[in-house]
Structure formats: structure tokens, C-alpha cells
Write a protein that binds this DNA or RNA. Sequence first.
DNA 1: TATGAATGAGGGTTCATTCAT
DNA 2: GATGAATGAACCCTCATTCAT
Lengths: 197, 197, 197, 197
Amino acid sequence: MFRQQGGAVTDPLGARQAGARRTREALLTAAAAVFVEQGVQAPIRDIAGRAGVGLGTVYRHFPSRAELVVAVYRHQIDECVALAARLRDEPIPAGEALTRWIGVFVEFLVTKHGLGVALQSEDPSLLTLHTLMLERLVPACASLIDAGVAEGDIDPAVTAHTLMRAVGNLCILGPGYERADAQAMVARLLVGCRRRS
Amino acid sequence: MFRQQGGAVTDPLGARQAGARRTREALLTAAAAVFVEQGVQAPIRDIAGRAGVGLGTVYRHFPSRAELVVAVYRHQIDECVALAARLRDEPIPAGEALTRWIGVFVEFLVTKHGLGVALQSEDPSLLTLHTLMLERLVPACASLIDAGVAEGDIDPAVTAHTLMRAVGNLCILGPGYERADAQAMVARLLVGCRRRS
Amino acid sequence: MFRQQGGAVTDPLGARQAGARRTREALLTAAAAVFVEQGVQAPIRDIAGRAGVGLGTVYRHFPSRAELVVAVYRHQIDECVALAARLRDEPIPAGEALTRWIGVFVEFLVTKHGLGVALQSEDPSLLTLHTLMLERLVPACASLIDAGVAEGDIDPAVTAHTLMRAVGNLCILGPGYERADAQAMVARLLVGCRRRS
Amino acid sequence: MFRQQGGAVTDPLGARQAGARRTREALLTAAAAVFVEQGVQAPIRDIAGRAGVGLGTVYRHFPSRAELVVAVYRHQIDECVALAARLRDEPIPAGEALTRWIGVFVEFLVTKHGLGVALQSEDPSLLTLHTLMLERLVPACASLIDAGVAEGDIDPAVTAHTLMRAVGNLCILGPGYERADAQAMVARLLVGCRRRS
DNA sequence: TATGAATGAGGGTTCATTCAT
DNA sequence: GATGAATGAACCCTCATTCAT
């Protein structure tokens, strides 16, 4: 009743919140980099070190490894989902839309070395990532496939879930199997998904 | 007190060699089983236990995990190589031969849970397995591809190494992506490898 | 813009003091509840959360865990002390007064899950609690014992400090040793403290 | 078939077994000492260090803390059980037998500082110790109580389990409450357990 | 004063690997 | 050759405590 502006005596909350957000973003950046180098099973300590923060800080922001992995990739997953919606609305053949969308998905995967492995891991701590993929990307992909099937361009036997798993697997890179190779193989796989004439 | 063999204080060499070979084979059998259940990263102790031998014995026979992995799969790799030679000599179209051969390779991979992961792992300890695949399977596959290209059936841009890596990746199974899915996806990939008409 | 109090830029002192006291009391209430549920070793964060204040606030009010523990129980200790004075003045046999007083002390202990453990812990951070018990309860108890000894009812060999420790220990509950068991055992102990006839 | 004496080539198993047993005993000795100093919740590392062995060695011999605690105290528990049987057979009053037996139990407890705390801990990892006490000592104690009740010496309302818990609690020592105090308090408790005349 | 983000010591546990017998 | 006890590095995770705002 005397002070309607709590901020006058306590510090403005914005400052700490902003600091925390910066820390969080530093962690996401560091984690993304470490995941590229070591895969998503990298020691949490390495991520903390790379981000220049203490171990406990990682746990404060991301209580489980899965939450960190999901956070790292969620943004890009969201973009993929949004792209599918846009492509569906464009005046292009559905097969072409699917090809373009898968192309973006491949870009996402091959630049995130380690995600491919994570996607096929049966580690329960990564189940959330599976769920995220299933719940968000599979429907997006399915809508494009359905349109292609409707236009008689895509083999009706193709299912979104299986196709995405296959594409995900094809994007697991290694020595002698680089980004361009993965792109080429995905392209051939898509050729095989067209309706046999 | 039971010296039935005159002056022979130590055993005849053959006996020890036979025992060692039997140990080695028990280890290979055990390792194959454990790899199916837990993947190639299974604890060495589990393999020793399954084979009924001591831990040190595993290390004596296979100083590194990779050597054990390679030994486990070498036999089947050899069979694949031999099959390629036989298929090349059969009076069937080269594309058909390649399809059959890849089918056998897929069978090999999907029944060896964890090998798929091992094949794309960058773990240096598994590099030998890569090498083995490259040196033995890639030439075998290449001979079939070359024949297919010569017959105008296969796209000349397809290289054996890339194709094998892709097939290997497609055979990494998981929940919701089972053996039949992998087989279907490999079949579609092969369709995409045919020469565009 | 809401300066209703002339030149007073900061709040009147009374307001802040009242707020601080309210915070302090919220903390004591929360700590008492958490101690019952988790024991006196509960994470400080849990107490802060239960009180709806920040972690730092707990440390400001109670720099060490022991100070918080002591503060939580001081009020009840004071009541025990006051009760001893009242009982001493009542026209009942001293042995009866001691029995009643111990009964109240037992009630205090068994409803404070974890205090029993704290009382016998050698954790130096809880030494203050020992001291508090010694300085306040032991004299209160001793006055009742002395009266009983004077009346020839209590064995003169009984010392207040030892008796209180023993009673405190008997009140450490556990599965299969509940409140009623502790009460019964304390009653038997008191029987054993009477002068042998 | 050539060698009926495996030990001739492999090393005699006795040597390693003996070494392991020595390690095990060193661990028990070290654990007992550390338990006295720090209680049964002492860091496993401390026990390993005191025994002069590696951390893993502790886990090899005692996969869980409870197993170590139980092993440390099992011998003395067994002796207590045996003593009860002997006392039951002696031509002395049952009340006297119970008193003597409890006296030995108290000796056991007060020299094992930390066991008292362990006995009343609700930590699930120590449940085994509870079980051991219950299954072995409680029946032993009960047989002595039953005999005392039959002779009209002990109050029939006394139960072995409650009495042992109470005695266990009374043996939790601390500054100003030493071994002699515990013994005196236990003696008074036993007085209170006699049938009121 | 109050806050809560950040810190990092501390303790648990697993397993690859060595080596004396 | 075979054994398996011992080792200790490497991870995981929790929480008491500090301190900038």
C-alpha cells in the first residue's frame, strides 16, 4: 500500500531474466556445437564448459538431457512444419512440393550431425525427441504425401513415418559419405516413391 | 602321475591349439548373440560371461572391441562377397543380380541389430570394420553395378561405396521402423538407382 | 507519483520491519511443515518454495540451517520451560509432575518427525540446538527431578541431562515403532527412575 | 583327457581367492572404522581409501551400501543370537537372562557408533539391516521375554520388537551422553519392563 | 531487503583395461 | 593360455551457498 512499484527497491526483474535468457541461449548454441562434434550423448560437462557456465546451470535450464536436445532442435523443427504448410498452398505439383520439403529436412539433418543418430536411438531419455518428430513433422510430411497421392504422383503405399525415418537414416553422415551423397541418395529414394507408371 | 605320454611334460601342441580355437569360437558365438541383444557397444564382461570364459580371455583373443566385431561379421561378409561372384555369372539381367545381392546384404544387416549403428559410427575403434566393408564388399558391389551400367540398366552416377553406406543406414531399425520397412525403403532406393529412361 | 507521505522517499521503517517479520514467520511455518515431512535435513530450497520466498531470503533470515531449526522449535521449547514452572507450583506429588512434564515433552518430540534425529546428530551445524536444549530444558527438567528427589520419589542418581537425552532418543520413531510405542517406553523408563523401595 | 590337473597350467585358484578374501576383510575392517567415525552413510570413497583399494573394488565385493553394512555387523548379530540360546538354557531366572542379554546387545551397539542411527533410519538402502535385525535378533529376544513372562517376572505387554528398538535408540550416543549413560538408561528401562507387583 | 541464477564440491555408479597368479 | 580381482577415469546428478541486480 506504500509502494506500488516493487521494482524501486528490489532490482528490476528484467535484468536477471535477460541474463538467464542469454545463458539459456549460450547453452543452446554450445550444445548444438557439441552435438555436432560428439553426438547428442556428449557429456553434459562438455556443454557446460563450452558455454562457459557451471554444470549446475545446465541442469537448472534443462533438467534432463532430452530437454536440451529437444530445445536445440525444436526451432528448426518448427520451421520445417511451417514450410510444409506454405508449400501445400503454393501452385506447384504435390510431388515437387514433397521433394522441396524433404530437401529442407535433409539440410536440417545433415547440418546437425548427431541428430540422425539421436533420431534412431532407442535411449529412453531421447523418447521426447521421437515424440516431437512424430507429432510435428510426421503430420506435416503426411499432408504433402497425401496431396501427392491425390494427384496420382506418389505411391499410396508410402507412409510419412517410414519415409521420414528412412530419410533420417540416409542423413547419417560419415567419412566417404558426405552431405552431397546423402542428398543424392534421398533424391533416389524419392524417385522410388513415385507411382509406378 | 598320469603321464601316459612318455616324456611329454607339456601337452602336445595340438591339444592346446584346439582348446584355443574352441574358446575363440565360443567367444564369437557369444558375441554375436550379445550384439543382437545389446548392440556392438555391449560391455565386454557380458560377452565373457555368455561365453563362459574370463574377461582376460576375451582380451587375449581380441585385443580391441573392433577386432571382435569384425571377426563376428567377417564370415557373413565373406559369404556376401562370394554371392556377388556367383550372381555375376548367372544368366540374369545385371539389375536383377544387384537387387538380389542387396537383398541378401539387407538380410544380413537387419538381423544384426546394432551393426547398422556400428557401420556409421565414427568411433575409431570400429574403423577396422569400415575398412573391412570397403575392401571386401565395395568391390563386390561395384562389380554388380558395373555390369548393370554396362547393360544400361543402372545409372552410371551410382557408386558402390555410397550405395552401400545408404543401404547400411536404411537398415538401422527402431521402434516403428522394422525390418519390412527397411526392405521396402531399400527397394525404393534401388528403383531410384536405375537409369532414367 | 504516489508519494502520499511527504518527503519520505523510502518507506517508513515500520512497514519494512513488519514485512520482514511476516517473511520470517512464513519461513518458520514453512520450515516446520517441511521438517515434519522430510526431516530437518530437507533441502533449503524446499523451505523457500513452501514459504513462497526466494532462496536468498532464507539465508538472510537464518544464515545457517541450525538457526532455522532452533527458531522453529524455540517457541515450543519455551512452552515446555513455562510448563515446568507451573507444574512445580501445583499441589501434586513431584513424581507426578515429572511424569506429566515428560509426557508433554514426548508429545513435542513425536509430532516433530526428524527432531529426534536432529537432537542426537553430531552435525556441528546443529550444536546450537543441543545448546538450546541444555540451557533451557535441562534446568526446567532438573527442577522437577530435584523436587522428586526431595520427596523421596525419584532416584537421586537420575540427572536431567541424561534423562532428556534418553527420552529424546526414545522418541525417534520409525516403521514398527510409532508414537504409542515411544510413549510406552518412556513411561517404563520413568518407572525405572523412581527410588527403589 | 591329457591333463587331469588343470591347476598345473593355470595358476592355483587358491591364491586369488585368498587375495580376494583378504581384500574383503580389509574392506570390512575399514568400513567398520569409517562407520564409527562418520556413520553408515559415509562416502564409499572414504571406505575404499581407508582400505587402500580402488573404488570399483568396493562395488565388486558389496554392490550396495546395505550389503556392506550388513556384512560389517552380521558376525556380531550372530553372536547375540547364539548368546540368547545359551542364556535360555542356563539355570538362572529369566529376568536375569534378559538383563544379561540386553547388556551384551548394548555393548554391541555402543561400540558401533553409527549403527544405532542406521537402525532407525528409514533409508530404503538400509532396509536389509532392519530385516536382519528383525529376523534374527527379535526372535532371540522374544524367546527370553517369553520365558520371563512365563515366570511372572516380565510384563506381558512388552514386545521384543519394541523393546529392541527402544534399546537401540537409547544406545545412540552423543556428547554428554556416553556409554555409561546409555547402559544406565537401558537398565532403568528394563526395570520398567518388570511386572508391577 | 529480496531475489534466484550461477556455481562447483561432493558422492554415486559403471566399465574398459591391466596384470599377477 | 586362462583367469578374474583390482583399478580409476569418466559420467551422472544434487544441493548448499554466494552474489549481482
